[in-house]
Design a protein around this nucleic acid. Structure first.
Lengths: 348, 348
DNA sequence: ACTTAGCACTCTGGGCATAGGAGTGCTAAT
DNA sequence: ATTAGCACTCCTATGCCCAGAGTGCTAAGT
């Protein structure tokens, strides 16, 4: 016979909140269902297990807790975690040491986006001890600012591309028969003049109007090169994964098939990509269990953050862990890292 | 009472060889210990299980087979696999289709070493269905050929390095306060003239003699840059891993702790590096189980191959799998790929 | 001298029942 | 409103048994 509870929406009672918070903390720490006795003994509630039991029954009634089976302790439901993340979780303060470690990571002279992305993935994975994914800005949407050609050997050039957002990409290419580096350089200059400001994704289409007077081999070369500008960096390199093996440390992944599901998900670029592009909001967000809407990671949670380039959100980072992940710590780390990354990417 | 056997060194008897070969083939295919009955029934030997049994007992006596326990079938020992790889394995012929797939992978205009390494790791991992590692040439040993500076913004430059072996690396850097791109470009020119032919690893030492007349900020910049030339590309990027998750498909890795051991090994660049560089031979080689001399991959085998740059072996690739891996197939694939990779890296 | 049938023996793994433990939910007393 | 008490449930670990697979040996056959 359920008691009448004051509200479905919120856990009004202060003690209920404390029970829920403590239980979730304990479960996060131990990965074992938590019973009333453990809770009463391990944490100094002024009340007996029986009272806790009643509270827990209520919390279950309200949907914040679940029962694996009759005689096990309780574990948080997705709703429980949600409430915890939104209202109960204590804000986590990072050590000065940790902050310094983040700063130090970016205190370098290198100005390659890809380098920063890599460093970030690794840094966050190491700090959180969860697998981490970083999504690079969509180069397709950036606008052409400058295209340079550097001759290295008679038939080899380095193309250096710079976008309006300051992203610099470069690639070494072989010239086709009959095309000289200085021709290409001249073409690149024309090209820059003509197309500065055009989104990279549109360049391929524009080529037809702009360069159709070129001769055969040159035409093919530009075609190939444009394909690189417009496509390659997006599809292949947008997603960087760090610390994938961290997942193996959590007891919920003692089963290889689960490990495979999750790791495959992380390595499958589209999945992550869609997940990240789904929520373009700023700030730190968590998706808990089924909230992720992905079958493969149904029993995982993700916490994601974004970073900016020129005051515009251009990329994301995401930490994936078991649902009982340490949300507080991860939030704090992601907040610090994404802020620092934004700062440093704007070459401030 | 063991029978007297004609030789310890080699399995003289033709039938013993056939039994051993067939047993290993079957075990490779099924991962289950093979019994005499299965062997006799599944493959048309003209003899009864009892005879097979005797042969198997002899083979065990000789050390080619093992017994997990009394009433299980036999599995090959490391020595058995070794014999199989050296003498019994049928040479595998690749489909024209597969060959074409390999060729197509490299039929591109890109001339970045790192790009080829990545492609190779992925290609081989996909084709063999085992995790694959590719080891890049040790840049430290290459000699400086050309160093270019391309100014991108007032305070940003792209450094393009070319070695005597034709490797091209580039990196985008921020200039320190008070240093202009054209100064750096001029310095780079000097630098090239002065140090062309010097191994990159020695550049750092030489700096002191060669550039000590430079002023403060310039000095620091070059110092930093030289550190990049001499170290960074080696430490960070020498090892590229592809298809790590393939390992999860093999029943011997149903246990997460084994998975972790192996994957951690593969991700530890140093470990892979020493394993591979210790054996500088050309051609395809297998290390079976304990032959790898590494505790973490004691029950794995690796097959490795090398690739060349200017007729000199500069890098390696390696496939890792359970000891019952498909050696024949892997040999064939590695042979084709390493040959093609060498060909294409010499920009022939 | 090799091959093979027969047979006793060994070891593993699945199935099953049992016992212990943890935790609950209810009731009744405080 | 809280709590002690207690019966009840369900999971898990353990021990046991048995079937199945495979062996090794012996003795008989070719």
């Amino acid at each position: 016979m359920p008691r009448v509870l004051s509200s479905e929406v919120s856990v009004v009672d202060g003690r209920k909140q404390k029970v829920l918070a403590t239980l979730i903390d304990d479960y996060i720490a131990t990965a074992e269902p938590v019973g009333s006795r453990t809770l009463a003994r391990k944490y100094a509630f002024g009340v007996s297990p029986a009272t806790i039991r009643n509270e827990m029954a209520d919390l279950e009634e309200l949907g914040y807790l679940e029962h694996p089976h009759t005689s096990a302790g309780r574990i948080p439901s997705d709703k429980g975690y949600r409430y915890y993340v939104d209202r109960l979780m204590r804000p986590w303060v990072l050590d000065a040491e940790v902050i310094e470690q983040i700063r130090a990571t970016y205190r370098v002279r290198v100005r390659e986006l890809q380098w920063f992305i890599h460093q970030t993935a690794r840094l966050v994975a190491d700090m959180t001890a969860y697998p981490t994914v970083v999504l690079a800005p969509p180069l397709r949407e950036a606008r052409l600012w400058d295209l340079r050609v550097v001759a290295i050997e008679p038939e080899t050039v380095v193309l250096v591309l710079r976008t309006d957002t300051g992203i610099i990409e470069n690639r070494t290419l072989a010239l086709p028969e009959g095309l000289e580096a200085k021709d290409v350089a001249a073409m690149a200059e024309d090209f820059t003049v003509q197309f500065r400001g055009t989104p990279l994704a549109q360049l391929e289409g524009r080529l037809i109007d702009g360069l159709s007077h070129q001769v055969g081999s040159a035409w093919r070369f530009w075609e190939e090169m444009l394909r690189w500008l417009a496509e390659a960096p997006d599809e292949e390199e947008r997603v960087t994964l760090g610390g994938a093996l961290n997942i193996l440390n959590y007891p919920e992944f003692r089963d290889v098939s689960k490990v495979r599901r999750v790791l495959t998900f992380l390595e499958t670029e589209q999945a992550v990509d869609t997940l990240l592009t789904l929520r373009p909001e700023q700030g730190i967000h968590a998706l808990i269990g089924s909230e992720t809407d992905r079958e493969d990671i149904r029993d995982c949670s993700v916490v994601m953050a974004s970073y900016q380039l020129g005051n515009k959100v251009v990329g994301k980072l995401m930490v994936l862990g078991p649902k009982r992940m340490e949300y507080g710590r991860v939030y704090a780390i992601l907040e610090a890292v994404s802020e620092e990354l934004s700062r440093v990417l704007n070459w401030a």
